[in-house]
């Protein structure tokens, strides 16, 4: 589903990722871990083509990100649900609208949008906050709206960048349960986190990064 082959990425002569190679199979749930600045976010960005590698190849859901035409990028991204570290919620839209946008972009009809958005908000226990605007939501609630937006389109790949960053341990556990449920339905899940608690005893693959170098892999 996701394949990195000798990928290197630099920003202003600073190595963000160096000669990274790994693959994630369809339906797998994998953790990318490492300290801040180890290249986790860069790695995710390369998957959803917010950036392109300087060298090496990346393949995502059958698309070669190096060969992809600019006009095809939206269609690649429609296969991916993203939980952004900085949320990227639209301040002038309520929780419902923020989640709905992922479906409207895909041209889903309004009736179906309504059903699926409420279902998705229910999954993250925010059905009662559907009319609330991001400003009036706590950090954890905002995080859950972002997750609802990422899963509402039932993507083949789900990327989560530090999904527990703003959550208390109980909520974080709830979110992890949501990810596991989504993964159980066949979605490939890739979680970038520095929080060991998330992958400890998970029985999932953990890819370790340090200063942009893949230093090893273990089972959590």
């Amino acid at each position: 589903m996701i394949e990195f082959a000798n990928v290197t990425k630099e920003y202003d002569n600073q190595t963000a990722l160096k000669d990274i190679s790994f693959s994630v199979g369809k339906g797998e749930m994998v953790f990318i871990t490492g300290p801040s600045g180890s290249g986790k976010t860069t790695l995710l960005k390369l998957i959803y083509v917010a950036d392109k590698p300087d060298t090496g190849n990346i393949s995502v859901a059958g698309w070669d990100t190096d060969q992809i035409k600019e006009s095809s990028i939206p269609f690649l991204r429609r296969n991916i649900g993203i939980v952004f570290q900085d949320f990227r919620l639209l301040a002038n839209k309520n929780a419902f609208e923020n989640v709905a946008i992922a479906l409207r972009i895909r041209g889903v009809g309004e009736k179906e949008v309504k059903t699926r958005v409420y279902e998705s908000l229910k999954t993250v226990n925010l059905r009662h906050k559907s009319d609330s605007f991001p400003k009036s939501l706590s950090g954890g609630e905002q995080q859950r709206v972002v997750i609802a937006r990422a899963i509402v389109s039932e993507p083949t790949v789900l990327l989560a960048d530090e999904p527990s960053g703003n959550l208390d341990p109980d909520t974080a556990e709830g979110i992890m349960r949501t990810f596991k449920d989504i993964n159980a339905k066949g979605t490939t899940v890739l979680i970038a986190t520095h929080n060991r608690e998330l992958y400890r005893n998970s029985g999932r693959r953990v890819i370790k990064l340090n200063s942009g170098i893949l230093i090893g892999e273990e089972i959590g």
Binding site: Y48, A50, S71, P74, F75, R77, R78, I80, I82, F84, R88, L90, I101, A102, I105, R106, R149
Partner: peptide
């Protein structure tokens, strides 16, 4: 700009 960037990352086409 920010809203548009988000739209792009979520898979919006140019015409959308």
């Amino acid at each position: 700009t920010e809203e548009i960037e988000t739209f792009k990352l979520l898979g919006a086409t140019r015409w959308f």
